[in-house]
Design a protein around this nucleic acid. Structure first.
Lengths: 201, 201, 201, 201
DNA sequence: GATGAATGAGGATTCATTCAT
DNA sequence: AATGAATGAATCCTCATTCAT
């Protein structure tokens, strides 16, 4: 449970980061946005880095991604596919959250080891879930290859989010979705069927 | 054709970024590494950002090279595939350039209009080339769907680069590559064959 | 009401300018003279220019003071005249502030819109006050002509300040003042008497 | 006689100063405008300051101001007045020249002793001429007071030019001119008549 | 708990001038 | 005569962090 003060600071930091990026998130700015003094920040957090870590911790926990799909009740193939598809569509639309995640990922890759570790955990988790979904949906045998497919899928989503944030506009969303639909309904099926026949190199 | 001075600076910047990260890449540091004065830097580049952009641009133009080679002479399918595969492997290794891509994308998202425009152009270009390769390799008919596939492919590569930079280590590279290989040698073939039979919605 | 910190900085800036000129007034120098760190300066002022503007503003608000005093209680003509005269003499002596006025005017002309706006307001204010004094002292009827006289008077003072700063030494101060005295005690009286009889063209 | 190279540089410097002010006039910029290399500048001039001096020398010589009025042929009072008036109107309109002169004056007052000296000479000259005109027009006796009046007049013009350059817009030009007209046709006459009766203090 | 003034090292950038070619 | 690459000290400004009140 976070204290009131911490929550105020976290929320402020989040808002600032979304608007001004990590570089633009200064202690002063966060303090101002939170309506407290700069000194007060240091009552709650030891350093700026600690704040970033907490922002990430909260931020990444919120992001359920496509992994919210319940696996408890056996659903029909078509239903699962549809849910995955809808989940991805939702993800593409969450501009603020995507920015935040992207900024944090960027900060992590700049050398912040703690953040990097946090991301690693999260990706492991996300990919685990995605793999589980694939296993169920496509009746595939869990293994390094299903995991690799999940990894590639996650990568494709991240990369697509990046292009959306950058407004690269290389092709209409309609066609992006057509390909996605094909992949989900046929591509993966084909892959998992074929791949099982191929011996591991 | 880059001047000697520019090359010296680019090489120095790349070296610094690999060793100290982007945050550690200061003008002073780059100048020192390049063995010139700080002022000299500004003889060749208008700003630090221009240098970073050039490092990225220079490094990632690999894609351009591959595209050019592949399309010059009619090669056999297997050869083209191999080149694409190798090109992607190369991309994964370009540590400094990949970091820069995310760093600069970050800047672009924060409102740097010039950068935003450059990224848009760059993605359009990359995806155009990728599409052209696909058209040749898979004997597909150029259209919004081939373009969408190229866009997804680009996205997947970017996303994979992100995971590599974050060291998410969700699965061994061997399996990542197995999936990639399947996609290139069979997946896309299958897709383009099937897709032509499906009418545009 | 200026804070202690601001006053310290303003005084330091004024001292530096008088001794080393505007070019010699660096942030480091001002900070040193004020006995604070360079960073502290930015706690009080947003930019170097803001400091310089404040030094000028503070110094030249003398005019404002005179105007206020004069109009508070009904004074005799001779007294008001004397105050205007003394006020002008004071203005001539404000070396740092006068230099700054020209320095900042220079900046304004080069396209600094904020500064341009400030100058416009300042001149409007000065001339309003001067006009009010004239109206009271010479019992003139407020209107475009009294305003025009105030404008010319302000112009003459500025121009004289310029010549003082340039040390043109075209004539002894004694005679400059004799003419000024005549203007104040007789010239303007004559003008306002005559002008009211002339119909507006 | 100035060499071709010098003339090119001077003209370039002049143009740059008018547009970007003295601070904006860099050796590089001047060289570029003149279409020569930065090094070439130093073939013709020893330093930047030397260029400024020359620009001023040319610039101030060109400015004939109201002093172009010929005193050779005895003109009628009304004619001379009209010429002075017209001369001032012309002066007000020469935006580029006024800027140049103002910028140079500013540079001089920043501590450049050579420029200051040059300005002193010029002001002495201008005021001498103005005084001579007054003596003739108003039939006054040359002396310190006529000189003081000329100095004040010059000051008023400079100050008015400043306000015009700053666009202070305190009053319509029409009324500015009405006051000026009164001064020329009646004010000065009155002054010179009265002043002769007053004994020098 | 809370404030906000103060620190000071470190950042990018500018520019008159020099000099080998 | 002419070039333009190179110099490097100096500029303004930023910001995480500290600490007396």
């Amino acid at each position: 449970m976070k204290s009131d003060g911490k929550m105020k600071i976290l929320e402020a930091a989040r808002a600032i980061i979304i608007e001004h990026g990590i570089q633009g998130a200064t202690i002063r700015g966060i303090a101002q946005q939170a309506g407290v003094s700069t000194g007060a920040i240091y009552h709650y957090y030891d350093s700026k880095e600690a704040i970033l870590y907490d922002v990430m911790d909260e931020g990444l926990s919120e992001i359920k991604r496509i992994a919210t799909i319940s696996l408890e009740d056996k659903k029909r193939f078509q239903e699962i596919i549809q849910e995955i598809f809808d989940g991805m569509q939702e993800r593409f639309k969450k501009d603020a959250e995507n920015r935040l995640q992207f900024y944090l990922a960027h900060e992590a890759m700049l050398g912040n080891e703690e953040l990097k570790h946090k991301f690693k955990e999260k990706y492991q988790d996300w990919i685990n879930r995605l793999e589980a979904i694939f296993v169920q949906a496509y009746d595939a045998k869990s293994g390094p290859l299903t995991r690799a497919v999940a990894t590639w899928t996650m990568a494709a989503i991240d990369g697509m989010v990046l292009q959306i944030l950058l407004h690269t506009d290389t092709v209409e969303l309609k066609h992006i979705n057509q390909v996605l639909e094909f992949l989900l309904s046929e591509g993966f099926s084909h892959f998992f069927k074929v791949i099982h026949e191929v011996p591991d190199k």
